[in-house]
Simulated scan of single mutants.
Amino acid sequence: MTRTFTETVVIPLASPKDAKRTADAVVPYLDPPPDHVLAITVVEKTPSGIDKAPLEQMSDRAEETLGIVAERFDEAGVPIETRVLYGENVIETILDAAQEADASSIVMMPRNASRWVKLLSGDTALSLMMNTDRPLIVVPDPERAD
């Protein structure tokens, strides 16, 4: 069976700002819309139990992130499913979601971060690229196209 890049698309999102930028970058490429679009955001849980912020606060931010992307996709007439996921490793959680959804691709827009931030926290795009078993489609930031 032949697959296309846009049968089932998984879009990982990091924050409300990222949701706006990613939706603006991705939507123009979805004509015709994929069969299934799944937007996810990962609430990172640390194994030691000491998290960056209270779980309720992180969950609320995740819901806000997904609400923004859902609204933007709805305005464009592209059906979308959203999910908040919880995991100790963001990359593994994204890859597990893609496998569970039988995604034909993962679509993302790289986030702006300094070299120091990438060094200390890791580069999500690079980690996904190095560990995925399916196509990773990176869309350009529309703000940089000017």
Rank of each mutant, 00 (worst) to 15 (best):
E88M: 06
L136W: 10
I68F: 00
Y86K: 05
I137T: 15
A98V: 07
E88P: 15
A62C: 08
P110I: 05
E88S: 10
M58Q: 10
R134E: 13
V90K: 02
P110W: 02
N112P: 09
L120I: 01
P79I: 02
V138A: 14
E92Q: 08
L119N: 12
I68N: 04
I80E: 02
A113K: 12
A98W: 04
M109N: 05
L119Y: 10
M130Q: 15
I94W: 00
T132W: 05
V84H: 01
M130K: 13
E64F: 00
T132Q: 08
R72T: 05
W116A: 15
D133G: 15
D123I: 04
R72I: 03
E75T: 12
F73M: 10
V90S: 07
V117A: 14
M130T: 15
M108C: 10
V138M: 15
S121G: 12
E92I: 00
L119Q: 10
V107H: 04
A98E: 08
E63K: 07
L95K: 07
Q57K: 01
P135F: 04
I80A: 02
E71R: 12
Q57P: 09
A70Q: 12
E56F: 00
K118H: 14
R61G: 08
Y86C: 05
V117T: 15
R111Y: 00
M108K: 00
A103I: 02
D74P: 15
G77K: 05
M58E: 07
T132D: 04
F73C: 09
S59C: 03
T124W: 03
W116G: 09
R83K: 13
D60K: 11
V90D: 08
N89P: 03
A97M: 03
E75A: 11
M108S: 07
Q57G: 02
G122M: 06
V138Y: 09
V90Q: 05
N112I: 08
S127Y: 06
M129R: 02
I91Y: 02
D123S: 14
R72S: 09
Y86M: 01
S127F: 03
D123V: 06
P110N: 06
T82F: 01
T65I: 02
E71T: 14
E56V: 07
D123G: 09
S114K: 01
S127A: 14
I80N: 08
D102I: 02
R111A: 08
N89T: 08
L136P: 12
I106E: 06
T132V: 10
S121T: 13
E75V: 10
D60I: 00
E71K: 12
G122N: 07
A103C: 12
T132L: 07
A97L: 01
F73I: 02
K118R: 14
P79Y: 00
S105R: 01
G87C: 04
E63C: 08
L119A: 13
R111G: 12
M108P: 15
A101E: 04
F73A: 07
L126T: 15
D123W: 04
M129L: 13
T132C: 11
I106M: 07
I80P: 15
L126Y: 05
L126K: 11
M108G: 12
D102E: 13
M130E: 15
R61A: 13
V78I: 09
L95F: 01
L66P: 05
W116S: 14
T65D: 03
D102L: 05
